[in-house]
């Protein structure tokens, strides 16, 4: 009897967190990403609210509607990636490939819209091309000088790089799905890339009001 109790206690306790190594690594990575983006956002808050003069949305050609559209694009992509995860659990490869393809396409749509926005900023004179390199210095006088373009392009640029990274991973999953190598046993692989994709969505959820509405 005593032996049975000792055995039960031995089974109850375990070393480390009750998650797989892969999920532990992904959450640790996301924890570092929280710090990375919060560093950028904190810099924005300090520089923005430490200044009395700041450009209006018209001064810098900001369009809230385009920002809101991009938010909806990322929200829909977050749904399609969880639907791909459900399809993986069910072993439904057709739906899995379909939802992964839609998610990657929505990621690319986000970047295409962002590229149009960047081009509009160039047309608006917020970026100059000097010796073939972009310089974040407005061609005309705006409140705060080059501070707004620097902050806008740094924040959205790093976020965009994360979106591109996510799209690359989603395309790799799609290739595996189409070649029949992404069965229910690879559930965690889809889940972890989904976690990363949702994190990218969460970052944009904060960047959108901060840059486009609060200003």
């Amino acid at each position: 009897m005593a032996h049975a109790h000792a055995h039960a206690a031995e089974e109850h306790y375990e070393m480390g967190l009750p998650v797989s190594n892969a999920k532990l690594a992904m959450w640790l990575f996301l924890a570092t990403e929280i710090m990375f983006f919060m560093g950028l956002i904190a810099s924005y808050i300090a520089l923005r609210f430490g200044r009395a003069d700041w450009p209006t949305p018209d001064d810098v050609g900001l369009n809230v509607s385009i920002g809101a559209l991009n938010t909806v694009v990322l929200i829909v992509s977050s749904v399609t990636v969880v639907l791909a995860l459900s399809a993986t659990a069910r072993g439904d490869r057709n739906q899995q490939a379909l939802y992964l393809a839609i998610t990657a396409a929505l990621g690319l749509t986000f970047m295409v819209i962002k590229a149009f926005e960047y081009h509009a900023k160039y047309e608006h004179g917020l970026v100059q091309i000097v010796n073939g390199w972009p310089v974040l210095q407005p061609t005309h006088e705006i409140a705060g000088g080059g501070l707004w373009p620097s902050l806008y392009f740094t924040l959205t640029g790093f976020h965009g790089l994360h979106v591109i990274g996510g799209v690359v991973m989603l395309v790799m999953l799609l290739i595996q799905s189409m070649s029949g190598r992404l069965g229910p046993d690879k559930y965690e692989r889809v889940e972890l890339i989904g976690l990363y994709w949702h994190f990218v969505d969460v970052v944009w959820i904060f960047l959108f009001p901060m840059l486009y509405m609060i200003g």
């Binding site: 967190l17 009750p18 998650v19 999920k23 532990l24 959450w27 640790l28 996301l30 924890a31 570092t32 929280i34 710090m35 919060m38 904190a42």
Partner: peptide, 13 residues
Amino acid sequence: KVKIMIIPAILLA
């Protein structure tokens, strides 16, 4: 399972 990683990151942020 993962709060031990998320809470310190959010607090430090």
